[in-house]
Design a protein around this nucleic acid. Structure first.
Length: 545
RNA sequence: GUUCCGGUAGCUCAGCUGGAUAGAGCAACAGCCUUCUAAGCUGUCGGUCGGGGGUUCGAAUCCCUCCCGGAACGCCA
């Protein structure tokens, strides 16, 4: 059992004997000030109300009743009621062997208990290239998926391809117009068409491929729609891949029509008695289930609104065996959440869907906001930015922000800072460790996996580092449960900082073999955690920088 | 007007299930490479935690209210 669990049991026992109270949760935190000890608990504060006693008294009583043990060097009550623990040196170093011998049990909390989660994100309509505004969803979603998997959830990541709506028709018309232009024929660009350069370029490509074949051809739009979709989806997949994002599944809206799922869900919604007709349109009574007002399912002209296939889609997710659905959407889809949840409720599914709304990214260039819009064609392509600065800064940047924080991205700064970005701080720590191992090899000093006891790790900086390493699993677990991915970069940054300080304070490779060997073990453990953390946020563990 | 986010250092953001002197990066300033990578370290500067009330032994954190910014309020998707 790890130190923290052992300590938790001891505290629970102390509370039991002091107050005859059974406490389930005992929170631990690293004291802000390392001189306060190796670990602290604010448990006395949460007991103050129920016990009607001052936190300080409670803390003292808990300390007095703490069972004798061989892990603690000292315990103290500090401030208004914190209990601070200092571990014995010999137990303090256990974390090193724990990490080195069984990293899996060390780092994986298993809280997910193989719960099946379907995580949908990005789902950009294939009507243009991905721009920087989409990158946040991609990076955040992918990191969340990795984090949940790490903690024992069975996650399927899915991209919903809107290939059936009238946006596809607009795409086909836009391509056709560009195609005509390329052919030197008169063309009328559709209202609300897509003005992006990529669309123009592909329109030209279609002309190069097909020549004059499709001029005034009855199948022109059908063919262009199909080829446009294929092309743009491929582009999107390439962009995602360049950002190290991959999806387990691409689910096409059109398949819902093909399988009859849309019709079927419409039939059942009607049968539920929760629909009515007004002004020739069919409404769903979503307002009875938390929505602001009722929503149209079928327009008076007979067309379906977008929500109908979406309802069918979400039900398909559930029918495929996923009872926890997470959608990551932009805040511009805010109004959509209540109606979708209400619709699922009507179908008999409650509390299956969680929607994470990502705040918009404001892109600033030269002090002016650049509006991201595919229709206008004015957008900073994700591809270009990745070519410029590489995927690491982008992955790190987005992973480091809490999901519902608003954020400004200064393009100039992002470019300028590519050598001064926080991501290099953490990567540099890893590269330095590699250099040390390299150098140690030349000195005929190799990492010794059999080393289990440590006697030379006296520097307080090492103590800080070990304390921090011990927090890794807890950090991941909390991050997964609250879906706060930004806790991972934060942790890695702090860890890297502790290493850099230590690196500057001590010489690692001079001195007794034992002195060196013990340091190599700490470095090995550190290396392991950094690699693991980098993997979670999708950045490269560079051996050389 | 209604709903949802946000307002913390010059800038970008952490901290928010109430608790120890409010943190980091960048920017600015002053130091540190004959020694394991200076993409680093050390120090300094920098904050009425949007304003005002309230609850509490204790509030950046909870409640109320106001101000400012973003998003959404379609028989668009």
């Amino acid at each position: 059992m790890d130190l923290q669990s052992t300590l938790k049991k001891a505290i629970q026992a102390a509370i039991k004997s002091a107050f005859d109270l059974t406490v389930e949760a005992v929170l631990f935190e690293l004291p802000k000030d390392p001189t306060h000890g190796d670990l602290a608990t604010p448990i006395a504060f949460s007991l103050a109300k129920p016990l009607s006693q001052a936190p300080k008294q409670i803390a003292e009583a808990i300390v007095a009743h703490l069972p004798s043990n061989d892990i603690l060097e000292s315990v103290s009550v500090a401030g208004p009621g914190f209990i601070n623990f200092t571990f014995k040196k010999t137990t303090q170093t256990d974390v090193i062997t724990h990490i080195l011998e069984d990293f899996k049990t060390f780092s994986e909390s298993g809280v997910g208990q193989h719960q099946k989660v379907l995580l949908e994100f990005v789902s950009v309509n294939p009507t243009g290239v991905m721009h920087i505004g989409h990158a946040r969803g991609a990076a955040s979603g992918d990191t969340l998926a990795r984090l949940l998997r790490k903690n024992g959830y069975d996650v399927l990541t899915e991209y919903y391809v809107n290939d059936a709506g009238n946006q596809m028709d607009k795409l086909a018309e836009s391509l056709y117009a560009r195609y005509l232009e390329a052919a030197g024929k008169p063309s009328v660009f559709p209202e609300d068409g897509y003005h992006g350069e990529d669309i123009t370029a592909f329109g030209n490509a279609l002309f190069n491929k097909h020549g004059l074949t499709y001029i005034d051809h009855p199948e022109a739009l059908t063919v262009f729609k199909k080829e446009g979709l294929e092309h743009l989806l491929l582009e999107i997949k390439n962009d995602l891949a360049s950002a190290r994002v991959r999806f387990d599944s691409y689910y096409h809206e059109s398949s819902l029509y093909a399988s009859g799922a849309v019709e079927e869900v419409l039939k059942r919604l009607k049968a539920s008695g929760q629909t009515y007709t007004e002004d020739g349109a069919l409404y769903l009574k979503t307002s009875a289930y938390g929505d602001e007002k009722d929503r149209v399912l079928v327009k008076s002209n007979g067309d379906y609104t977008y929500i109908l296939p979406d309802i069918a889609y979400h039900e398909q997710k559930i029918k495929r065996g996923y009872h926890t659905l997470i959608d990551i959407l932009g805040t511009d889809h805010h109004g959509y959440v209540a109606r979708l949840k209400a619709s699922l409720h009507i179908l008999g599914y409650q509390d299956v869907l969680e929607v994470i709304l990502l705040q918009m990214v404001r892109v600033i260039e030269d002090g002016v906001e650049i509006k991201m819009s595919k229709r206008s064609g004015q957008a900073l392509a994700l591809k270009d930015l990745i070519e410029d600065v590489g995927p690491d800064p982008i992955r790190y940047f987005f992973a480091a922000r809490s999901l519902n924080s608003h954020m400004d991205l200064d393009i100039e700064l992002a470019r300028k800072q590519k050598n001064d970005n926080p991501v290099y701080y953490v990567q540099y720590a890893y590269a330095r460790i590699q250099a040390l191992f390299e150098k140690a090899t030349h000195l005929n000093q190799a990492f010794d996996p059999t080393l289990k006891t440590f006697t030379t790790l006296e520097n307080p900086l090492i103590n800080d580092l070990l304390n921090h390493l011990r927090q890794y699993p807890d950090t991941l677990k909390k991050a997964a449960l609250s879906k706060e991915i930004h806790k991972v970069p934060k942790y890695l940054h702090d860890l890297a900082g502790l290493f850099h300080k230590w690196y500057s304070a001590e010489s690692f490779l001079t001195g007794e073999p034992r002195y060196i060997s013990e340091r190599l073990s700490v470095l090995k453990a550190l290396e392991k955690v950094l690699e693991d953390g980098f993997e979670l946020i999708g950045i490269e563990a560079k051996r050389v920088m």
